[in-house]
Amino acid sequence: MKQFLAVIGFSLLTIAAFTGYSNFGIPRIEPAPPPKQEKIDLGSMTMDQFIALGDRVLNGKGTCKLCHNDLGRAPMIKQIVPNAEKHLTDSRYKGEAKDLAEYLMESMVNPSAFVVAGFGKAGSNDTVSPMPDVSGGSIGLSEPELLAIIAYLQDSAGADVTVEIPTDAGDVAEEEEAEEREPLEDPLEIAAEFGCGTCHKIGEEEGDLAPDLRTIGATRDREFLRRSILYPNAEITEGFEEGMMPDDLGDQMFAVEVERMTDYLAGLK
């Protein structure tokens, strides 16, 4: 019996050691929740907002930066537009695109139409792209989202934005099992809905866990503000903790709300 207990004790200790190590020996990381299905209210969107949506999809749901980053897995986002012209006239090009926008669209839904030299799937001699069709599968971008990405890519490369904001997608969005909530108009209502005031000073709210937002427009531009809401941990304001501000606001807020909030904050000088 003593033997038996010793063996049991030893085994339990082993398991406890592994469990302890996994719980406390390595950083605690919560995996991102499954992507929410994007709610887009295109009806009231300006081109700027549409471009911002593209930025957001590119960084978030599109998971583009999983590959398009500086680790050499895929071409850098910045280089895509400048190189596209060359690729369109490349002798290896087999696709059907005639202009930049079409080329970008094709690259996203049929990545193997042209594979940038050196990036093809191993052994395919640059005929098969490792990039998935981002309109299907686990990424599943919708047509408006793809167009928004194109708009963003064109805009950030200094090219003319040639895509138009789709209008019929408005109805499509309605058909979705959207939450009952309507997008809020008033920035302070938005702030109340998402509890910005519990941490920040904003409007009448007097939170003091986070930077004062009442004059934030004087020091921060719209880009920065939008990013702070969508990706609060991208840059941490000095003197504050990382990871305090919720990083899933982008998933909870309507795109228009993010834009309205950004506009409002940028105007606070």
Partner: peptide, 29 residues
């Protein structure tokens, strides 16, 4: 991830999230 059958059949249950390592190793233990 959040798929029953990858890219074909989405898991929409409340448990579709990927468990964190700590959570998973507790279950395993």
């Amino acid at each position: 991830q959040h798929w029953h059958v990858v890219d074909v059949f989405r898991d929409n249950s409340p448990d579709a999230f990927t468990p964190s390592l700590g959570y998973a190793t507790n279950v395993i233990s």
